[in-house]
Amino acid sequence: MNPLFVKDSLKAFLLEDTYYSDITTDSICSNRPAKAIIRAKEDFVLAGSIFIEPLLKLMDEAFCVELFKHDGDSVRAGDAIAEVESTDRALLYIERTCLNILQRLSGIATKAYTFADILKPYKTRITDTRKTTPGFRFFEKYAVSVGGGKNHRMGLFDAVLIKDNHIKAAGGIKRAVELARRGVSFTTKIEVECSDIGEVEEAIASGVDIVMLDNMSLGQMKEVVSLFRGEVVFEASGNINEDNLRDIAEIGIDYISSGSIIHHACWVDINMKLE
């Protein structure tokens, strides 16, 4: 985790809310010493607590944060997550930004944990996608890992994923893979999205590392895995939910990718109260 990236991102989040100033707080508060408790109001898996300290540091160098719960912990309604000592002004400046991060990331971690827990008896692992909030991807993917999920590629820069539009642009899977191999390092893995058995066969013959079975039926996936087991890594994607995870895992799929663990995750309820 690059601390410079984290600092710059947190600063941007804080500036979005405060811009020139917090006119309410600046009118009322006078930089007196103050203490606040961050507390859970429902049950969830915590994520984002590691960002409380660097966020507060942007407002006050002389502060104290005591964490009672850490990222990955199961939190119960009423549990104190952290005690924060600073000035009244600093605490009120960062309150909403801090809670937004904790509530959003904890919701994602909780959703990811639910999926990962269902898959525990199997070799299959749940992974995220690039369906993330612009500007917040790193944090959302961090929350997935906290919840027990795996991260797919972070962006367009760290892995090759040839999708249907790439295949059309190149004129076919084989040609797309050949062009990709020429354009990237030999250390870079190549994945191809396939929608039927014929495409899977062509992708494997082209020497890909990972085959994504996109929106295939259980019957199609069973046939593919039985024919090509062990030749590549298989990823299932499309219409993934908690009801069909086990059925897909039982086929022997290596990874199941789901955007819903991020974009369908509900915020959890957390508050911050001055003492």
Rank of each mutant, 00 (worst) to 15 (best):
T188W: 03
L156Q: 01
N151W: 13
G207Q: 10
G198Q: 14
H166F: 12
S195G: 12
G171H: 08
E193N: 09
G183H: 08
I173H: 03
I197V: 14
S185I: 08
A176K: 02
F157L: 14
M154K: 12
V211K: 01
G198W: 02
A203S: 13
V144C: 11
V208M: 00
A203H: 01
K174M: 08
G147W: 06
E202I: 15
G172Q: 08
S145G: 10
R175W: 03
V184K: 03
E202W: 14
I210Q: 05
V211C: 11
E201N: 13
Y142W: 10
T187Q: 08
V177Y: 00
R175Y: 05
R181K: 15
G147Q: 09
E191V: 03
K141L: 04
N215K: 06
K141W: 07
R182I: 10
D164Q: 11
K168Q: 09
I204F: 00
I173A: 04
A169Y: 08
A143G: 09
S185L: 06
G171T: 06
V146P: 06
T187K: 13
L179E: 08
S206F: 03
V177L: 03
G148W: 06
I197L: 14
G198T: 11
C194Y: 01
S145H: 10
L179W: 04
M216R: 11
L161G: 05
G183E: 05
G207Y: 00
N165P: 00
L179T: 05
A170T: 05
K174V: 09
S145E: 13
R175E: 12
